[in-house]
Design a protein around this nucleic acid. Structure first.
Lengths: 193, 193
DNA sequence: TTGCTTTCTTGACATACCTCATCGTTTTGG
DNA sequence: CCAAAACGATGAGGTATGTCAAGAAAGCAA
């Protein structure tokens, strides 16, 4: 069973080349945290202070509207980053919650530490920039699908793109992510064709 | 009537502080381009080569699906940037079209030039980073609205947030942006309450 | 295991949105 | 300025998705 930092080290190694001194700097900078299922990583109203790298488990970002309905913005699992970038950037209270769908483990990078690391280890900085670029493109794609696809198309795309989420997340959360009701998703899944 | 570059200079001045030498470097780097209504700035299948700053007019980014339906991803007008970031980053053919909804004028920054400018003028680089951060947050907000709002709510939010687009863009394009049919939008607009 | 709670499935019905067709209005280009 | 085209409004009727309710299945705690 690899430690959280070993998972992270593997991830970094797959994306760029760093020497042992760089890894030592990363390991010293990082704070590991365990989350039980249902535990919050971030609660609405709090300011998001960390970039979080997930080494184990499954989390989601979601909002709760006036009627109490939850709206899942995204899922993230091992080897994904999660945070509320808006709150992290602006240092304003977050509109979102982040919590663990399974027992999970994350590495926390606070904002000044992350800045220090991306400045002092340029290859690491480039990697992070690449992650942000990719997440922007993913957002664009999701917007495109939201305005142009039916519920069934959205679900099929979701399963293809994120088979792990499709298997591990409850259907009610997947439905919420897709912008449809759980009953509708259940019917889509169980209809033959 | 200010020139295109004067519009851009005002914009930059509102966001950061540059000296005259910096502005001279920017002016030398930039290529102005006029677009007639309906003219493409980028066509599907072409690689996006430019960051474009709009000094006049109104443009849209959209895709066309197998059935010939257009899906408007975004609008942009004076003092907005437009490009296909995915294609620009990856240098792969774009899935989108960008064209002018009104006669328009833009300033073109090609990719290497932009890199050179953001490196050599740090304040300008920071401003560009800020623009990208803001556009990521805007994407997140749009996803949230897409999965959590009714057609009417989406339209009301759109009008509030972008009164200029609501007035200047044809309703069929606004409907497409919202992910609804033009007839539905027409009915929403004309229903009393 | 045993029960308790949460999640999923399914039916009946309601409704928001879509489709297609028509027609009046506005815009466009020669 | 006129004719053609594009745009927007509106009606009738269809379909996808939502709502509410009940029961089955699966997960969880003791």
């Amino acid at each position: 069973m690899p430690t959280g930092f070993e998972v992270f080290k593997d991830y970094v190694t797959r994306h760029t080349q760093l020497n042992e001194a760089d890894f030592a700097a990363l390991e010293a900078a990082v704070r590991p945290k365990k989350l039980r299922k249902h535990q919050y990583l971030l609660q609405e109203g709090d300011v998001c202070r960390y970039h979080c790298f997930i080494t184990k488990g499954l989390l989601r970002t979601y909002s709760v509207d006036e009627k109490g309905n939850e709206h899942v913005m995204r899922f993230a699992m091992e080897n994904w980053w999660i945070s509320d970038r808006e709150s992290l950037l602006t240092e304003q209270p977050s509109r979102f919650n982040i919590d663990a769908i399974e027992d999970s483990e994350v590495l926390l990078f606070d904002k000044p530490t992350m800045e220090m690391l991306t400045d002092s280890i340029p290859a690491f900085g480039k990697m992070i920039t690449g992650v942000l670029d990719k997440s922007f493109i993913t957002s664009q794609t999701r917007i495109h699908e939201a305005i142009s696809s039916t519920a069934e198309e959205k679900y099929n795309i979701f399963v293809q793109r994120y088979p792990g989420f499709a298997l591990r997340a409850p259907q009610s959360m997947i439905a919420s992510y897709l912008g449809i009701k759980p009953e509708t998703l259940s019917r889509l899944r169980n209809k033959k064709h």
